[in-house]
Design a binder for these strands. Sequence first.
RNA 1: GUGACCGUAGCUCAACCUGGUUAGAGCGUCGCCCUGUGGAGGCGAAUGUUGCGGGUUCAACUCCCGUCGGUCACCCCA
Length: 404
Amino acid sequence: MSKTVLQTLKGFRDFLPKEAMQRQWLRNIMIKVCESWGYEPLETPTLEPLELFAGQIGEDEKLFFKFKDQGGRDVALRYDQTVPTCRVIGQYASQLIYPFRRYQIQPAFRAEKPQKGRYREFTQFDIDIFGILSPVADAEVIAVTLDIYRKLGFKSAIALVNNRDLMKDVPYTAIAAIDKLKKIGEEGVIQEMVKKGIDLDKAKYYLSYVQNIKPDETVKIIFDYLKSAGFDKTWYKFEPTLARSFSYSQGPIWEIVIPEAGESSVGGGERYDAMIERISGQKVAGTGIGIGFDRTLEAALACGLVPDFQSVSKVLVSVFSKELWNNSMKVAESIRKSGVAVELYPDPEVKLEKQLKYANKKNLPYVLIFGPEEVKNNVVKLKDMKTGEQTTETIENVIKKLTD
RNA sequence: GUGACCGUAGCUCAACCUGGUUAGAGCGUCGCCCUGUGGAGGCGAAUGUUGCGGGUUCAACUCCCGUCGGUCACCCCA
């Protein structure tokens, strides 16, 4: 194999066990929280007809990962999870039960130029609820999201909330500019608008108009809900200049920021009733959030919330000699039966010293050691790798200790 | 898609600007000290088509072009 093949494609990543375990940890918590709120999993294909995505946003076709399949069909890798879900709503209209709550965690693919935190294959965690027009639906999705960050152990996460409907009188180009306020400042926003053909006076007017928007009834309903759901008021905030410049955003819009881990957002959501109807042909209300899985993991790592995963198993059963190989196997098997993750050193010829070094490097909590002496007395030595302490026990006792 | 910077041992880097005999160091790895016990220490050893391809040159890790990959900004972000 030539050496150039030993690398991943631009913007694609491998996850070695340590990293993969961290991802699984995060994924499991997110799923658990979602299900505790009654959200059910949904999965859609990796490959879709190109028109499903391209039909939606015609202009920026460049970013699709698209190609022709063997049958000459134009296909594209999953670009996001919202659009396929809209397809599902149309395709299975007769079987879905509303309100329909679903979460979805799958990779999305975009042919972007990669940079930090932006890859061509990345994982998105979406939480959406369909069939409910009331802002209570938006509030619930925000509450589930905040619950996830709370359960992950963050001291705080803030939902910045606004209502796109309050910007009805502001043209889209102005909204898109105002969305960048945090990044480019007031001057930058005004310049951006002027560049896009808006008069200077109007640009200034739009900016100050938006900055002075006050929360409406919809926003109040959402905040009341969050308060009742047990979130301190430091966990949510009205943010008039939050714009979510997606063309399909409507109604409540929000973003999640984690102050302890930087100011950029880890996810954002909005209502998109109109897009659902456009794609599915069904008049179904829908609102939800897309959470950046990678960004959330990065934030959790930065805040020291991720357990230090080194190994999957709790104990290594060492092999003293070829003659005792069968004993080691039996011991490992009986521990495994008790539900404890156990690994057997897979080579009877290797010196005990090397087996211990292995256990040490992998950070395995315990090692079981037994030679002829112990076998004769029907006991084993349980070594605690952290303290170095070693006790002689019966297997039953070892299992009891390990399952505690 | 546009622009900038980067790519040397498993890892972090030196040598590149000002081309010149066997490309170095630390960490890690492996072995021994230690024939029933890891982490510390001592001693010893192995390792590179200098990302890949081409060009210039008597000579390229070094200069030039291309390509692949990375980082950053812009663009974009359903």
